[in-house]
Simulated assay, not measured.
Amino acid sequence: MTIATPLADERDEFPTVAEAYKTKLGKMYQGTVEDFLDLQGKKLKGKVQLVFFSPPFPLKRKKKYGNKDGDEYLAWLQKLAPRLADLLTEDGSLVVEIGNAWDPGKPTMSLLPLQSLMAIAEGGDLNICQQFVCNNPARLPTPAQWVNIERIRVKDSYTHLWWMSKSERPKASNRNVLQDYSPSMQALLKRGHYNHGTRDSGYDIGETSFLTNNGGAIPSNVFNFSNTVANDAYRRYCREHGLKPHPAPMQAKLADWFIRFLTDKDDLVFDPFGGSNTTGAMAEQLGRRWLAVEPLADYIAGSKGRFEQFRAAGSEVS
């Protein structure tokens, strides 16, 4: 899902926005996010409950999906941020995934990702509700020069996700993302008692404080999601149709988690950098309406494979 808007001198390749396909609950458009907002921004203003996206990371090496760097990247994000913020409902949320960047030719990290966060938050006049970390333990060891060859760094395996909103109290419920209780907690609930009293930390643990079964544990803001499934429906579809899979798709579990946490059924979810359309597929699965926009036809064609599972339910791509 990590797809860039083409550089300014490349936008002539995508002069218009066209509907690429639709499902029961959503639509994928081909075009740039800027062109899409030019055409649809006023219509969608104040109607999107969640803008969820992973913009192109500020890489130094050009990719097929395009990427900017330095001041150009920051200026682009700051200009785009208010247009995305305008789409949000009063209690809507914007969640952006921002990866790390390294200084070219040096074993030192760039401040550009942090500056990017500021560009989005300040450009969109948004509150930062919470920071999340997504660790991918299966990520390849990079940066290769410093990790594999010189062995002077460890692999860079995580990204940050920043939850923002116009409101200080956007719609959210951690009850929608409870995780299974640990075996020890399950045993405690079954046993019905535990060692209560004052702890060394000063906390006074009541006799029944942890005996209520709430249906699961409140999760932390740190995820461990791998993205290495080689034979999922999306990749099988790409192989069968001779399509190259997107090189940096969003983890399905990540999109699923934030959609459940921040939206309700029938809410509208928008991904301005659709890529392989993980966001749209997870929104469809969860009964949310969705919109996505993506400039590259190859990635759009492959993204249809994410909806194969919905054919039997009448949500076939058309």
Results as ranks from 00 to 15, higher is better:
Asn195Trp: 04
Gln179Trp: 04
Met185Gln: 14
Gly197Leu: 04
His160Trp: 03
Ser276Cys: 14
Glu72Phe: 11
Met118Leu: 13
Ala312Val: 12
Ala217Leu: 03
Glu308Pro: 07
Lys155Val: 00
Ile152Thr: 13
Ala20Met: 05
Pro272Glu: 04
Arg311His: 14
Pro143Glu: 05
Gln131Ile: 02
Gln186Met: 13
Val48Cys: 07
Thr142Leu: 12
Leu94Ile: 13
Leu178Ile: 12
Asp232Thr: 06
Leu39Val: 10
Ala121Asn: 07
Trp162Lys: 11
Ala283Thr: 03
Gln285Lys: 15
Pro82Thr: 11
Lys62Ile: 05
Leu50His: 09
Ser157His: 06
Asp180Asn: 15
Gly197Tyr: 05
Phe210Lys: 13
Tyr237Trp: 04
Thr16Gln: 07
Pro6Arg: 09
Asp204Arg: 15
Leu77Lys: 06
Ala248Trp: 03
Gln40Lys: 15
Gly99Leu: 10
Ala75Lys: 15
Asn148His: 09
Ile120Arg: 06
Thr279Gln: 04
Trp146Glu: 04
Asp12Tyr: 12
His241Gly: 05
Asn224Trp: 06
Gly26Leu: 08
Gln285Val: 00
Leu44Val: 06
Phe270Glu: 02
Asp91Arg: 15
Thr23Met: 10
Tyr181Ile: 07
Gly192Val: 08
Gly206Phe: 00
Gln115Asn: 11
Thr159Asn: 14
Gly215His: 04
Ala283Val: 02
Gly287Asn: 05
Ala248Ile: 06
Leu211Asn: 03
Thr23Pro: 05
Lys155Thr: 03
Asp86Ile: 04
Lys79Val: 02
Lys190Asp: 03
Lys62Thr: 09
Glu34Thr: 14
Phe310Thr: 09
Val154Lys: 09
Pro104Trp: 10
Ala252Lys: 13
Trp290Ile: 08
Gly46Met: 10
Leu262Arg: 03
Asn227Ile: 05
Ala187Cys: 06
Arg175Met: 10
Thr5Ser: 14
His196Pro: 03
Ser167Val: 10
Lys64Ser: 07
Leu211Met: 11
Ser226Trp: 01
Pro56Trp: 11
Val96Phe: 10
Val133Thr: 13
Gln40Asp: 01
Tyr158Gly: 08
Asp298Thr: 15
Thr89Ile: 07
Thr2Lys: 14
Tyr194Met: 09
Met109Asp: 00
Ile205Glu: 10
Asp9Ser: 14
Leu268Phe: 02
Pro245Thr: 11
Gly31Thr: 06
Ala297Lys: 15
Lys27Pro: 00
Cys238Gln: 04
Asp69Lys: 15
Met250Lys: 12
Arg83Glu: 01
